[in-house]
């Protein structure tokens, strides 16, 4: 699949933003005074920037509001509603906390909605049977793990952050390996795609078009696989090991910010791989 910058920004930033806001909602972050205001601003900023980036992926962004309509059947629509509900609830929570009022029930509801939003984002991809690598419960699990980990790192919980970074690294590694196995085991082949299997071995002879098309650009993207192993190693180092290293030095706000920046950059790289490595069954017609 084409690794669109808008979707990488969307999933990385909104995931981290909702992860951070979920932590705040549960009362685990500093939610009062200037520090609280700063963390709320960061959480809402990340979530809203991510959501704004997602509209850049639309062909007709001016019609984005229509995406709220089909929540009964569409995960994309559910994601839109959940994001709106989470942001609304957490805005109320932030206002109450910054006014020094108790707001834990509102916060818990907001945290749940934020995590459901991240899960719904992942389900947009996990629902697609056409992409065997994504079509698995591990896709929402990995998205949630990244959101929670980013939330822990951003709120500066040093030891929980270190533990979660290592755990997410392991989960990501397992997800890559099981994803490879799923992609390799896909029952969809050139033979089943053309129905010519009973006759013999099928080899592409002539593509339908000499240039590129929307289909080949969007769904027959192959560049990512050439350096996949190197990029996975780099992603593991950047997203998890480097932030752990930074967090192990005596705690300081600069160290936390640096660790969070490294983790988000690494997460963006894992998301690039998430799209670039994903094989759509349509490719069977072309290669």
């Amino acid at each position: 699949m084409h690794p669109a910058a808008s979707l990488i920004a969307f999933t990385t930033l909104s995931g981290a933003g909702f992860g951070l806001l979920a932590f705040m909602g549960l009362g685990l972050g500093v939610s009062r005074g200037w520090a609280g205001a700063g963390l709320f601003a960061l959480g809402f900023g990340l979530a809203l920037t991510g959501l704004a980036a997602s509209t850049a992926h639309l062909g007709r962004p001016e019609r984005a509001i229509k995406a709220f309509r089909e929540w009964r059947s569409s995960w994309l629509s559910r994601e839109a509603w959940l994001a709106l509900a989470a942001l609304g609830t957490l805005t109320l929570f932030a206002a109450l906390r910054l006014a020094n009022l108790p707001a834990l029930p509102v916060g818990i509801l907001g945290a749940a909605l934020a995590l459901f939003t991240v899960a719904a984002t992942a389900m947009i991809y996990a629902q697609l049977r056409t992409v065997p690598r994504w079509h698995h419960w591990s896709t929402p699990a990995i998205f949630l793990a990244h959101a929670v980990t980013a939330g822990t790192v951003l709120t500066g919980f040093r030891w929980p952050a270190i533990v979660l970074l290592m755990a997410t690294a392991l989960a990501q590694f397992v997800a890559w390996k099981t994803g490879d196995a799923r992609a390799a085991a896909s029952p969809t082949t050139r033979e089943s795609a053309t129905g010519l299997g009973p006759i013999g071995h099928v080899r592409p002879f002539e593509p339908p078009h000499t240039g590129n098309s929307y289909l080949t650009k969007e769904m027959v993207f192959v560049i990512g696989r050439k350096h996949a192993v190197k990029l996975r190693a780099l992603a593991l180092a950047l997203a998890y090991l480097a932030p752990v290293g930074v967090l192990l030095i005596p705690p300081h706000i600069v160290a936390v910010a640096f660790a969070a920046a490294l983790h988000l950059a690494g997460t963006a790289l894992t998301r690039w791989l998430f799209f670039a490595e994903a094989e759509h069954v349509l490719a069977r017609y072309y290669r």
């Binding site: 699949m1 639309l58 229509k66």
Partner: peptide, 27 residues
């Protein structure tokens, strides 16, 4: 008139039956 050009239908189709119009940006 209702299409926002998100392209999710093209992703969901195993056959590559849907394409986004490069000028109108709808499916």
């Amino acid at each position: 008139a209702e299409c926002i050009g998100c392209g999710l239908c093209a992703w969901a189709c195993p056959y590559g039956a849907r394409e986004q119009d490069p000028a109108q940006k709808v499916m």
